[in-house]
Design a protein around this nucleic acid. Sequence first.
DNA 1: CGTTGACTTAAAGTGTACTTTAAGTAGTAT
DNA 2: ATACTACTTAAAGTACACTTTAAGTCAACG
Lengths: 145, 145
Amino acid sequence: MNNFSNNTKYNIGEFSHKFNLPASTLRYYENEGLIKPQRDLNGRRYYTAEDVSWLKFLNHLKGTGMSIKELKQYIMWREQGDSTIPQRLKLLKTTKNNFLQQFSEIQHHLQILNDKINWYEEKETGIISEDEDFAGYLQRLGHHE
Amino acid sequence: MNNFSNNTKYNIGEFSHKFNLPASTLRYYENEGLIKPQRDLNGRRYYTAEDVSWLKFLNHLKGTGMSIKELKQYIMWREQGDSTIPQRLKLLKTTKNNFLQQFSEIQHHLQILNDKINWYEEKETGIISEDEDFAGYLQRLGHHE
DNA sequence: CGTTGACTTAAAGTGTACTTTAAGTAGTAT
DNA sequence: ATACTACTTAAAGTACACTTTAAGTCAACG
């Protein structure tokens, strides 16, 4: 852990570039309460190192399937302090369970996609018989549909 | 491979139940050309074992990120016969590559989600120091944000 | 000192994948 | 016979997550 604070400031253009998100999306996130940049004397946004960490974390949560609505709820709890840690934990665990469920499904999707690609390739190169269909191929491999 | 054909027929309600998809979605898929059920003498749809295999496969492709537009393109090529296998292969391989890219991102998202859950739990039970923040915790674990 | 370019806002628009509605028909159950 | 249920269609509506538009402000550069 380091104890010196990083005072780097980013205007919306720089922050947008850093995260590869259009400025409009950053404004949208702000509107939804997902991120709360400071303002300079002219009313323009600036983002700090804290915002960098926070947006990275938000992206991870989004990536595990949390909706903007759920993120808003999470943030509300966060703002209410440590007493809401149980609620936050529950939300994160539910998210994790849903995600793990989907994760195993998508692994199966990937296997079938791979099998189909191999089937086409073996068909093209004449490795598999003219009339073995994909269902038969899967069955031969022991992969269920 | 089995050589006897399965003549089971499903009406839209049965098929809907089998796939856990509303009948309206099945009609929508048909409208988009993704599935082509037969009709009985009263003009009502019925689905066969072939439709079962096909919809399962479609679900796998959808699950790897193919859009309905791409599925339509795939189907058009399929209907044009074996000469379009190269195009179909190319589409499937692109889909696979995009998917693998996302897959590794998703694994990272999951790791961070797990880390956050553990962080909260260790914080609740007093295992980690009062003032170690999440960024510090990740750093200690050697997990980058 | 005027123009350029980055910013500001609220509100309307977009894309994707469904989902619902409205109005009608056909076969089954009492 | 009549009510019920499952089906039929085309078209409009919804949810989500942005994205674009329109109209305006501000400060630095030539």
